[in-house]
Design a protein around this nucleic acid. Structure first.
Lengths: 242, 242
DNA sequence: GACACAATGTCAGCAAGGTGACACCATCTG
DNA sequence: CAGATGGTGTCACCTTGCTGACATTGTGTC
Protein backbone atom coordinates (compact mmCIF):
# COMPACT_ATOMS: atom_id res chain seq x y z
CA UNK A 1 0.00 0.00 0.00
CA UNK A 2 1.10 3.53 -0.68
CA UNK A 3 1.57 5.30 2.60
CA UNK A 4 1.87 8.71 1.02
CA UNK A 5 -1.79 8.48 0.07
CA UNK A 6 -2.92 8.28 3.68
CA UNK A 7 -4.94 11.30 4.76
CA UNK A 8 -3.22 13.54 7.21
CA UNK A 9 0.35 12.62 6.43
CA UNK A 10 1.28 15.82 4.67
CA UNK A 11 -0.37 18.01 7.25
CA UNK A 12 1.34 16.09 10.01
CA UNK A 13 4.71 16.53 8.37
CA UNK A 14 4.14 20.25 8.15
CA UNK A 15 3.10 20.36 11.79
CA UNK A 16 6.39 18.88 12.83
CA UNK A 17 8.21 21.49 10.83
CA UNK A 18 9.70 19.70 7.88
CA UNK A 19 10.53 16.44 6.21
CA UNK A 20 13.07 15.48 8.86
CA UNK A 21 10.51 13.42 10.74
CA UNK A 22 8.88 12.19 7.61
CA UNK A 23 9.79 8.56 8.15
CA UNK A 24 8.49 8.67 11.68
CA UNK A 25 5.20 10.14 10.55
CA UNK A 26 4.83 7.39 8.01
CA UNK A 27 5.39 4.84 10.71
CA UNK A 28 2.76 6.54 12.80
CA UNK A 29 0.30 6.53 9.95
CA UNK A 30 0.99 2.89 9.50
CA UNK A 31 0.17 2.23 13.13
CA UNK A 32 -3.03 4.11 12.62
CA UNK A 33 -4.05 1.51 10.07
CA UNK A 34 -2.98 -1.35 12.25
CA UNK A 35 -4.62 -0.30 15.44
CA UNK A 36 -8.24 -0.74 14.63
CA UNK A 37 -9.98 -0.09 11.37
CA UNK A 38 -12.78 2.01 12.85
CA UNK A 39 -13.63 4.50 10.14
CA UNK A 40 -15.72 6.15 12.84
CA UNK A 41 -12.57 7.50 14.42
CA UNK A 42 -10.02 8.68 11.87
CA UNK A 43 -6.79 10.02 13.29
CA UNK A 44 -6.02 13.69 12.90
CA UNK A 45 -2.66 15.06 11.77
CA UNK A 46 -2.02 16.01 15.39
CA UNK A 47 -2.65 12.43 16.46
CA UNK A 48 -0.13 11.17 13.96
CA UNK A 49 2.43 13.74 15.03
CA UNK A 50 1.96 12.74 18.67
CA UNK A 51 2.55 9.11 17.85
CA UNK A 52 5.55 9.84 15.68
CA UNK A 53 7.29 11.78 18.42
CA UNK A 54 7.39 8.89 20.85
CA UNK A 55 8.12 5.94 18.57
CA UNK A 56 11.39 4.05 18.47
CA UNK A 57 12.36 1.36 16.01
CA UNK A 58 14.17 -1.81 16.90
CA UNK A 59 15.18 -4.88 14.91
CA UNK A 60 15.84 -8.42 16.07
CA UNK A 61 17.61 -11.28 14.29
CA UNK A 62 15.67 -14.52 13.80
CA UNK A 63 15.38 -16.67 16.90
CA UNK A 64 15.76 -13.77 19.36
CA UNK A 65 13.74 -13.98 22.49
CA UNK A 66 12.05 -10.58 22.26
CA UNK A 67 10.35 -10.77 25.59
CA UNK A 68 10.48 -13.49 28.23
CA UNK A 69 7.33 -14.61 30.03
CA UNK A 70 6.73 -13.68 33.64
CA UNK A 71 7.66 -10.02 33.47
CA UNK A 72 5.57 -6.89 33.08
CA UNK A 73 6.72 -5.26 29.85
CA UNK A 74 7.74 -1.61 30.09
CA UNK A 75 6.80 -0.88 26.52
CA UNK A 76 4.27 -1.71 23.85
CA UNK A 77 5.50 -3.07 20.54
CA UNK A 78 3.98 -2.99 17.11
CA UNK A 79 5.30 -5.47 14.59
CA UNK A 80 6.49 -3.86 11.37
CA UNK A 81 8.27 -6.66 9.50
CA UNK A 82 8.71 -10.34 10.19
CA UNK A 83 6.83 -12.71 12.47
CA UNK A 84 6.83 -13.28 16.21
CA UNK A 85 5.78 -16.52 17.89
CA UNK A 86 4.01 -16.34 21.24
CA UNK A 87 4.46 -19.58 23.13
CA UNK A 88 4.55 -21.25 26.50
CA UNK A 89 6.98 -24.01 27.35
CA UNK A 90 9.96 -24.87 25.23
CA UNK A 91 11.08 -27.10 22.43
CA UNK A 92 8.69 -29.61 20.94
CA UNK A 93 6.40 -29.55 24.01
CA UNK A 94 5.67 -25.87 23.83
CA UNK A 95 2.22 -24.64 23.00
CA UNK A 96 1.84 -21.72 20.63
CA UNK A 97 -0.72 -19.08 21.58
CA UNK A 98 -0.39 -17.20 18.35
CA UNK A 99 1.80 -15.85 15.60
CA UNK A 100 2.09 -12.08 15.31
CA UNK A 101 2.26 -10.63 11.81
CA UNK A 102 3.06 -7.12 10.63
CA UNK A 103 0.51 -4.77 12.11
CA UNK A 104 -0.09 -6.78 15.25
CA UNK A 105 0.35 -5.16 18.64
CA UNK A 106 1.49 -6.73 21.88
CA UNK A 107 2.41 -5.76 25.40
CA UNK A 108 -0.47 -3.31 25.72
CA UNK A 109 -2.78 -5.76 27.51
CA UNK A 110 -0.20 -6.48 30.16
CA UNK A 111 0.43 -2.80 30.69
CA UNK A 112 -3.29 -2.02 30.97
CA UNK A 113 -3.84 -4.79 33.51
CA UNK A 114 -0.44 -4.54 35.20
CA UNK A 115 0.04 -8.25 34.68
CA UNK A 116 3.14 -10.12 33.54
CA UNK A 117 3.33 -11.54 30.03
CA UNK A 118 2.02 -15.10 30.27
CA UNK A 119 3.96 -16.22 27.19
CA UNK A 120 7.39 -15.82 25.63
CA UNK A 121 7.76 -13.79 22.43
CA UNK A 122 10.32 -15.10 19.93
CA UNK A 123 11.24 -13.71 16.53
CA UNK A 124 10.72 -16.23 13.73
CA UNK A 125 12.33 -14.05 11.07
CA UNK A 126 14.45 -10.94 10.97
CA UNK A 127 11.98 -8.68 12.72
CA UNK A 128 11.54 -4.96 13.17
CA UNK A 129 9.25 -3.47 15.79
CA UNK A 130 8.01 -0.01 16.62
CA UNK A 131 8.45 0.57 20.33
CA UNK A 132 6.22 2.73 22.49
CA UNK A 133 7.22 3.20 26.12
CA UNK A 134 4.49 2.42 28.61
CA UNK A 135 4.44 5.94 29.98
CA UNK A 136 4.11 7.36 26.48
CA UNK A 137 1.41 4.84 25.70
CA UNK A 138 -0.56 5.93 28.72
CA UNK A 139 -0.07 9.58 27.86
CA UNK A 140 -1.19 9.09 24.28
CA UNK A 141 -4.31 7.24 25.40
CA UNK A 142 -5.16 9.96 27.88
CA UNK A 143 -4.65 12.89 25.55
CA UNK A 144 -5.73 11.53 22.15
CA UNK A 145 -9.30 10.22 22.22
CA UNK A 146 -9.14 9.14 18.58
CA UNK A 147 -6.16 6.96 19.23
CA UNK A 148 -7.78 5.51 22.33
CA UNK A 149 -10.87 4.75 20.28
CA UNK A 150 -8.82 2.92 17.67
CA UNK A 151 -6.92 1.01 20.27
CA UNK A 152 -10.26 -0.13 21.64
CA UNK A 153 -11.10 -1.60 18.24
CA UNK A 154 -7.69 -3.24 18.05
CA UNK A 155 -8.12 -5.07 21.32
CA UNK A 156 -11.71 -5.93 20.43
CA UNK A 157 -10.49 -7.56 17.24
CA UNK A 158 -7.93 -9.60 19.12
CA UNK A 159 -10.61 -10.73 21.54
CA UNK A 160 -12.88 -11.81 18.68
CA UNK A 161 -9.99 -13.74 17.12
CA UNK A 162 -9.24 -15.41 20.42
CA UNK A 163 -12.84 -16.50 20.91
CA UNK A 164 -12.91 -17.80 17.36
CA UNK A 165 -9.89 -19.91 18.17
CA UNK A 166 -11.51 -21.35 21.30
CA UNK A 167 -14.51 -22.33 19.21
CA UNK A 168 -12.24 -24.13 16.79
CA UNK A 169 -10.58 -26.08 19.58
CA UNK A 170 -13.69 -27.23 21.41
CA UNK A 171 -15.27 -30.54 20.51
CA UNK A 172 -13.96 -30.78 16.97
CA UNK A 173 -12.01 -33.50 15.22
CA UNK A 174 -8.37 -32.84 14.48
CA UNK A 175 -9.17 -32.70 10.77
CA UNK A 176 -11.69 -29.92 11.35
CA UNK A 177 -9.31 -28.03 13.59
CA UNK A 178 -6.50 -28.37 11.08
CA UNK A 179 -8.60 -27.19 8.16
CA UNK A 180 -9.69 -24.09 10.04
CA UNK A 181 -6.20 -23.34 11.30
CA UNK A 182 -4.77 -23.50 7.80
CA UNK A 183 -7.47 -21.18 6.47
CA UNK A 184 -6.97 -18.76 9.37
CA UNK A 185 -3.19 -18.62 9.02
CA UNK A 186 -2.97 -18.60 5.23
CA UNK A 187 -1.70 -15.58 3.34
CA UNK A 188 -2.27 -15.87 -0.38
CA UNK A 189 -2.86 -19.57 0.02
CA UNK A 190 0.48 -20.09 1.77
CA UNK A 191 1.04 -21.12 5.37
CA UNK A 192 4.79 -20.61 5.91
CA UNK A 193 5.11 -22.60 9.13
CA UNK A 194 6.69 -25.97 9.86
CA UNK A 195 4.42 -28.78 10.94
CA UNK A 196 5.86 -28.78 14.43
CA UNK A 197 4.66 -25.20 14.92
CA UNK A 198 1.23 -25.94 13.51
CA UNK A 199 0.99 -28.92 15.86
CA UNK A 200 1.95 -26.68 18.79
CA UNK A 201 -0.85 -24.28 17.82
CA UNK A 202 -3.41 -27.08 18.12
CA UNK A 203 -1.89 -28.62 21.21
CA UNK A 204 -1.26 -31.94 19.47
CA UNK A 205 1.87 -33.90 18.53
CA UNK A 206 3.54 -33.67 15.19
CA UNK A 207 2.89 -37.26 14.04
CA UNK A 208 -0.86 -36.80 14.61
CA UNK A 209 -0.91 -33.60 12.58
CA UNK A 210 1.30 -35.11 9.89
CA UNK A 211 -1.20 -37.91 9.40
CA UNK A 212 -4.03 -35.42 8.83
CA UNK A 213 -1.92 -33.31 6.48
CA UNK A 214 -1.01 -36.34 4.38
CA UNK A 215 -4.69 -37.19 4.07
CA UNK A 216 -5.45 -33.67 2.94
CA UNK A 217 -2.60 -33.79 0.46
CA UNK A 218 -3.75 -37.16 -0.87
CA UNK A 219 -7.16 -35.59 -1.49
CA UNK A 220 -5.57 -32.75 -3.42
CA UNK A 221 -6.62 -30.08 -0.95
CA UNK A 222 -3.15 -28.92 0.03
CA UNK A 223 0.45 -29.36 -1.04
CA UNK A 224 3.03 -30.01 1.64
CA UNK A 225 6.29 -28.12 1.16
CA UNK A 226 9.40 -27.69 3.25
CA UNK A 227 8.34 -25.73 6.36
CA UNK A 228 5.20 -24.60 4.56
CA UNK A 229 1.78 -25.67 3.41
CA UNK A 230 0.17 -24.51 0.20
CA UNK A 231 -3.60 -24.53 0.00
CA UNK A 232 -4.64 -25.66 -3.45
CA UNK A 233 -8.40 -26.06 -2.95
CA UNK A 234 -9.62 -23.53 -0.37
CA UNK A 235 -13.30 -24.38 -0.90
CA UNK A 236 -12.77 -28.06 -0.23
CA UNK A 237 -10.72 -27.16 2.82
CA UNK A 238 -13.54 -24.92 4.03
CA UNK A 239 -15.94 -27.85 3.67
CA UNK A 240 -13.80 -29.85 6.05
CA UNK A 241 -13.99 -27.31 8.84
CA UNK A 242 -17.36 -28.78 9.75
CA UNK B 1 -20.34 -3.65 48.80
CA UNK B 2 -21.82 -0.35 49.89
CA UNK B 3 -22.47 1.69 46.83
CA UNK B 4 -23.14 4.86 48.79
CA UNK B 5 -19.47 4.91 49.74
CA UNK B 6 -18.32 5.20 46.13
CA UNK B 7 -16.63 8.50 45.37
CA UNK B 8 -18.61 10.80 43.17
CA UNK B 9 -22.06 9.45 43.81
CA UNK B 10 -23.28 12.33 45.91
CA UNK B 11 -21.87 14.95 43.62
CA UNK B 12 -23.37 13.19 40.63
CA UNK B 13 -26.76 13.10 42.30
CA UNK B 14 -26.57 16.81 42.94
CA UNK B 15 -25.53 17.45 39.36
CA UNK B 16 -28.66 15.76 38.14
CA UNK B 17 -30.72 17.98 40.44
CA UNK B 18 -31.98 15.70 43.16
CA UNK B 19 -32.51 12.20 44.44
CA UNK B 20 -34.94 11.28 41.66
CA UNK B 21 -32.19 9.69 39.61
CA UNK B 22 -30.43 8.27 42.58
CA UNK B 23 -30.97 4.66 41.61
CA UNK B 24 -29.70 5.29 38.12
CA UNK B 25 -26.57 6.94 39.42
CA UNK B 26 -25.95 3.98 41.64
CA UNK B 27 -26.24 1.69 38.65
CA UNK B 28 -23.78 3.87 36.78
CA UNK B 29 -21.32 3.79 39.65
CA UNK B 30 -21.65 0.05 39.66
CA UNK B 31 -20.78 -0.10 35.99
CA UNK B 32 -17.78 2.03 36.73
CA UNK B 33 -16.48 -0.73 38.97
CA UNK B 34 -17.27 -3.44 36.46
CA UNK B 35 -15.74 -1.85 33.43
CA UNK B 36 -12.09 -2.04 34.25
CA UNK B 37 -10.42 -1.61 37.58
CA UNK B 38 -7.86 0.92 36.40
CA UNK B 39 -7.28 3.18 39.36
CA UNK B 40 -5.40 5.32 36.88
CA UNK B 41 -8.67 6.51 35.40
CA UNK B 42 -11.30 7.13 38.05
CA UNK B 43 -14.64 8.31 36.76
CA UNK B 44 -15.77 11.81 37.57
CA UNK B 45 -19.25 12.70 38.82
CA UNK B 46 -20.00 13.99 35.34
CA UNK B 47 -19.01 10.64 33.87
CA UNK B 48 -21.38 8.86 36.20
CA UNK B 49 -24.19 11.26 35.40
CA UNK B 50 -23.62 10.73 31.69
CA UNK B 51 -23.84 6.99 32.08
CA UNK B 52 -26.89 7.18 34.29
CA UNK B 53 -28.83 9.20 31.78
CA UNK B 54 -28.64 6.60 29.03
CA UNK B 55 -29.07 3.36 30.97
CA UNK B 56 -32.12 1.14 30.81
CA UNK B 57 -32.80 -1.90 32.95
CA UNK B 58 -34.27 -5.12 31.68
CA UNK B 59 -34.95 -8.48 33.30
CA UNK B 60 -35.25 -11.92 31.73
CA UNK B 61 -36.70 -15.12 33.16
CA UNK B 62 -34.42 -18.19 33.29
CA UNK B 63 -33.94 -19.92 29.96
CA UNK B 64 -34.63 -16.83 27.87
CA UNK B 65 -32.61 -16.46 24.74
CA UNK B 66 -31.28 -12.97 25.36
CA UNK B 67 -29.60 -12.60 22.03
CA UNK B 68 -29.47 -15.02 19.10
CA UNK B 69 -26.23 -15.59 17.21
CA UNK B 70 -25.74 -14.20 13.74
CA UNK B 71 -27.07 -10.70 14.33
CA UNK B 72 -25.31 -7.45 15.09
CA UNK B 73 -26.61 -6.31 18.47
CA UNK B 74 -27.97 -2.77 18.64
CA UNK B 75 -27.10 -2.37 22.29
CA UNK B 76 -24.49 -3.23 24.86
CA UNK B 77 -25.54 -5.06 27.97
CA UNK B 78 -24.02 -5.22 31.42
CA UNK B 79 -25.07 -8.09 33.62
CA UNK B 80 -26.40 -6.98 36.99
CA UNK B 81 -27.86 -10.15 38.51
CA UNK B 82 -27.91 -13.75 37.40
CA UNK B 83 -25.81 -15.65 34.88
CA UNK B 84 -25.78 -15.79 31.09
CA UNK B 85 -24.41 -18.69 29.07
CA UNK B 86 -22.68 -17.95 25.77
CA UNK B 87 -22.79 -20.98 23.52
CA UNK B 88 -22.74 -22.28 19.98
CA UNK B 89 -24.87 -25.16 18.81
CA UNK B 90 -27.74 -26.57 20.79
CA UNK B 91 -28.60 -29.19 23.32
CA UNK B 92 -25.96 -31.60 24.51
CA UNK B 93 -23.70 -30.95 21.50
CA UNK B 94 -23.35 -27.27 22.11
CA UNK B 95 -20.02 -25.77 23.09
CA UNK B 96 -19.95 -23.11 25.76
CA UNK B 97 -17.70 -20.12 25.15
CA UNK B 98 -18.19 -18.68 28.57
CA UNK B 99 -20.50 -17.88 31.44
CA UNK B 100 -21.19 -14.21 32.15
CA UNK B 101 -21.47 -13.20 35.80
CA UNK B 102 -22.64 -9.95 37.37
CA UNK B 103 -20.35 -7.19 36.20
CA UNK B 104 -19.57 -8.75 32.84
CA UNK B 105 -20.19 -6.82 29.65
CA UNK B 106 -21.20 -8.13 26.25
CA UNK B 107 -22.23 -6.86 22.86
CA UNK B 108 -19.62 -4.12 22.82
CA UNK B 109 -17.09 -6.10 20.79
CA UNK B 110 -19.59 -6.78 18.06
CA UNK B 111 -20.59 -3.15 17.97
CA UNK B 112 -16.98 -1.96 17.77
CA UNK B 113 -16.17 -4.35 14.95
CA UNK B 114 -19.58 -4.25 13.26
CA UNK B 115 -19.67 -8.04 13.37
CA UNK B 116 -22.57 -10.33 14.26
CA UNK B 117 -22.59 -12.15 17.59
CA UNK B 118 -20.91 -15.51 16.95
CA UNK B 119 -22.69 -17.14 19.88
CA UNK B 120 -26.12 -17.30 21.46
CA UNK B 121 -26.69 -15.69 24.84
CA UNK B 122 -29.08 -17.53 27.17
CA UNK B 123 -30.12 -16.63 30.70
CA UNK B 124 -29.32 -19.39 33.20
CA UNK B 125 -31.14 -17.68 36.07
CA UNK B 126 -33.55 -14.84 36.52
CA UNK B 127 -31.36 -12.16 35.07
CA UNK B 128 -31.30 -8.39 35.04
CA UNK B 129 -29.21 -6.38 32.62
CA UNK B 130 -28.33 -2.74 32.21
CA UNK B 131 -28.85 -1.80 28.59
CA UNK B 132 -26.87 0.81 26.71
CA UNK B 133 -27.93 1.58 23.14
CA UNK B 134 -25.14 1.37 20.59
CA UNK B 135 -25.46 5.02 19.64
CA UNK B 136 -25.27 6.06 23.27
CA UNK B 137 -22.32 3.75 23.79
CA UNK B 138 -20.48 5.38 20.92
CA UNK B 139 -21.35 8.83 22.20
CA UNK B 140 -20.17 8.06 25.72
CA UNK B 141 -16.88 6.67 24.40
CA UNK B 142 -16.31 9.75 22.26
CA UNK B 143 -17.11 12.33 24.92
CA UNK B 144 -15.88 10.68 28.12
CA UNK B 145 -12.20 9.75 27.93
CA UNK B 146 -12.21 8.27 31.42
CA UNK B 147 -14.97 5.90 30.51
CA UNK B 148 -13.22 4.96 27.27
CA UNK B 149 -10.06 4.29 29.24
CA UNK B 150 -11.91 2.00 31.61
CA UNK B 151 -13.61 0.20 28.79
CA UNK B 152 -10.19 -0.45 27.32
CA UNK B 153 -9.18 -2.20 30.53
CA UNK B 154 -12.40 -4.17 30.51
CA UNK B 155 -11.80 -5.58 27.06
CA UNK B 156 -8.14 -6.17 27.86
CA UNK B 157 -9.16 -8.27 30.82
CA UNK B 158 -11.51 -10.33 28.71
CA UNK B 159 -8.73 -10.90 26.20
CA UNK B 160 -6.35 -12.05 28.93
CA UNK B 161 -9.01 -14.43 30.23
CA UNK B 162 -9.59 -15.79 26.76
CA UNK B 163 -5.89 -16.44 26.18
CA UNK B 164 -5.68 -18.09 29.57
CA UNK B 165 -8.45 -20.41 28.51
CA UNK B 166 -6.70 -21.33 25.25
CA UNK B 167 -3.61 -22.20 27.24
CA UNK B 168 -5.67 -24.48 29.42
CA UNK B 169 -7.12 -26.29 26.42
CA UNK B 170 -3.91 -26.90 24.49
CA UNK B 171 -2.02 -30.13 25.05
CA UNK B 172 -3.28 -30.86 28.53
CA UNK B 173 -4.92 -33.92 29.96
CA UNK B 174 -8.60 -33.73 30.74
CA UNK B 175 -7.81 -33.94 34.45
CA UNK B 176 -5.61 -30.85 34.21
CA UNK B 177 -8.19 -28.99 32.16
CA UNK B 178 -10.94 -29.90 34.60
CA UNK B 179 -8.95 -28.84 37.64
CA UNK B 180 -8.20 -25.46 36.14
CA UNK B 181 -11.76 -24.93 34.93
CA UNK B 182 -13.15 -25.63 38.38
CA UNK B 183 -10.71 -23.21 39.98
CA UNK B 184 -11.46 -20.55 37.37
CA UNK B 185 -15.23 -20.84 37.69
CA UNK B 186 -15.46 -21.27 41.44
CA UNK B 187 -17.00 -18.61 43.66
CA UNK B 188 -16.41 -19.26 47.34
CA UNK B 189 -15.45 -22.81 46.51
CA UNK B 190 -18.72 -23.47 44.70
CA UNK B 191 -19.17 -24.14 40.98
CA UNK B 192 -22.95 -23.98 40.48
CA UNK B 193 -23.07 -25.60 37.04
CA UNK B 194 -24.30 -29.02 35.92
CA UNK B 195 -21.74 -31.45 34.58
CA UNK B 196 -23.18 -31.21 31.09
CA UNK B 197 -22.36 -27.49 31.01
CA UNK B 198 -18.87 -28.03 32.37
CA UNK B 199 -18.33 -30.69 29.71
CA UNK B 200 -19.52 -28.25 27.03
CA UNK B 201 -16.99 -25.69 28.29
CA UNK B 202 -14.15 -28.16 27.71
CA UNK B 203 -15.51 -29.47 24.43
CA UNK B 204 -15.77 -32.94 25.89
CA UNK B 205 -18.65 -35.39 26.46
CA UNK B 206 -20.35 -35.72 29.79
CA UNK B 207 -19.33 -39.33 30.54
CA UNK B 208 -15.66 -38.43 30.09
CA UNK B 209 -15.95 -35.48 32.45
CA UNK B 210 -17.98 -37.50 34.94
CA UNK B 211 -15.20 -40.06 35.14
CA UNK B 212 -12.64 -37.36 36.01
CA UNK B 213 -14.96 -35.77 38.55
CA UNK B 214 -15.56 -39.08 40.30
CA UNK B 215 -11.81 -39.59 40.54
CA UNK B 216 -11.41 -36.14 42.08
CA UNK B 217 -14.25 -36.84 44.50
CA UNK B 218 -12.75 -40.20 45.47
CA UNK B 219 -9.51 -38.36 46.29
CA UNK B 220 -11.40 -35.94 48.52
CA UNK B 221 -10.63 -32.91 46.36
CA UNK B 222 -14.21 -32.02 45.48
CA UNK B 223 -17.74 -32.93 46.46
CA UNK B 224 -20.24 -33.54 43.69
CA UNK B 225 -23.69 -32.05 44.33
CA UNK B 226 -26.80 -31.72 42.25
CA UNK B 227 -25.96 -29.35 39.40
CA UNK B 228 -22.97 -28.09 41.36
CA UNK B 229 -19.43 -28.95 42.43
CA UNK B 230 -17.96 -27.97 45.77
CA UNK B 231 -14.21 -27.63 46.02
CA UNK B 232 -13.06 -29.04 49.31
CA UNK B 233 -9.27 -29.01 48.82
CA UNK B 234 -8.33 -26.07 46.55
CA UNK B 235 -4.57 -26.59 47.02
CA UNK B 236 -4.72 -30.21 45.95
CA UNK B 237 -6.86 -29.20 42.99
CA UNK B 238 -4.28 -26.55 42.05
CA UNK B 239 -1.59 -29.24 42.12
CA UNK B 240 -3.51 -31.17 39.50
CA UNK B 241 -3.59 -28.32 37.01
CA UNK B 242 -0.07 -29.33 36.00
C1' DG C 1 30.33 -31.32 -2.80
C1' DA C 2 30.39 -32.48 2.18
C1' DC C 3 28.40 -31.44 6.17
C1' DA C 4 25.23 -29.90 9.78
C1' DC C 5 20.82 -28.98 10.84
C1' DA C 6 16.08 -28.86 10.44
C1' DA C 7 11.85 -30.75 8.78
C1' DT C 8 9.17 -34.57 7.11
C1' DG C 9 7.48 -39.59 6.89
C1' DT C 10 6.30 -43.62 9.36
C1' DC C 11 5.28 -47.28 12.64
C1' DA C 12 3.54 -50.48 16.47
C1' DG C 13 1.79 -50.46 20.83
C1' DC C 14 -0.78 -47.89 24.23
C1' DA C 15 -3.90 -44.63 26.55
C1' DA C 16 -7.56 -41.53 26.39
C1' DG C 17 -11.83 -40.05 25.09
C1' DG C 18 -16.16 -40.68 22.17
C1' DT C 19 -20.77 -43.30 21.53
C1' DG C 20 -25.11 -44.48 22.65
C1' DA C 21 -27.68 -46.45 25.84
C1' DC C 22 -29.85 -47.28 30.12
C1' DA C 23 -30.88 -47.00 35.17
C1' DC C 24 -31.28 -44.10 38.89
C1' DC C 25 -31.79 -39.85 41.71
C1' DA C 26 -33.08 -34.63 42.90
C1' DT C 27 -35.95 -31.00 42.38
C1' DC C 28 -39.96 -28.72 41.07
C1' DT C 29 -44.87 -28.34 39.86
C1' DG C 30 -49.39 -29.26 40.39
C1' DC D 1 -47.86 -37.32 46.58
C1' DA D 2 -47.33 -38.17 41.61
C1' DG D 3 -45.49 -37.13 37.53
C1' DA D 4 -42.32 -34.45 34.70
C1' DT D 5 -37.96 -32.78 34.02
C1' DG D 6 -33.38 -32.66 34.18
C1' DG D 7 -29.00 -34.20 36.33
C1' DT D 8 -25.95 -38.11 37.54
C1' DG D 9 -23.64 -42.88 37.34
C1' DT D 10 -22.07 -46.42 34.47
C1' DC D 11 -20.96 -49.68 30.77
C1' DA D 12 -18.91 -52.19 26.51
C1' DC D 13 -17.18 -51.14 22.29
C1' DC D 14 -14.80 -48.30 19.10
C1' DT D 15 -12.03 -44.46 17.30
C1' DT D 16 -8.59 -41.16 17.85
C1' DG D 17 -4.41 -39.32 19.20
C1' DC D 18 -0.01 -40.10 22.01
C1' DT D 19 4.76 -42.20 22.60
C1' DG D 20 9.22 -42.52 21.28
C1' DA D 21 11.92 -44.01 17.97
C1' DC D 22 14.02 -44.23 13.59
C1' DA D 23 14.72 -43.37 8.60
C1' DT D 24 14.56 -40.05 5.04
C1' DT D 25 14.68 -35.65 2.71
C1' DG D 26 15.33 -30.49 2.08
C1' DT D 27 18.24 -26.25 2.85
C1' DG D 28 22.00 -23.49 3.72
C1' DT D 29 27.04 -23.17 4.77
C1' DC D 30 31.89 -23.77 4.26
Amino acid sequence: MDLSKLPGIDQAARLLGGPAHDAQIREAAWIARCVGRGEAAPLTPEDLATLAQVLRTRTYPPGTRIFPSGQIPDHVWILRHGRIELSVGSGTRRTVIGILRPGDVDGDIQHLLAMPLPYTARALDETTCLILDSADFERVLATRPHIARRWLSSIAMRLATSQHRILNLLGRTLTQQTARLLLDEAIDGQVPLPQSTLAAMLGVRRPSLNKILKELERDGVITIRYAAIEITAPETLADRTG
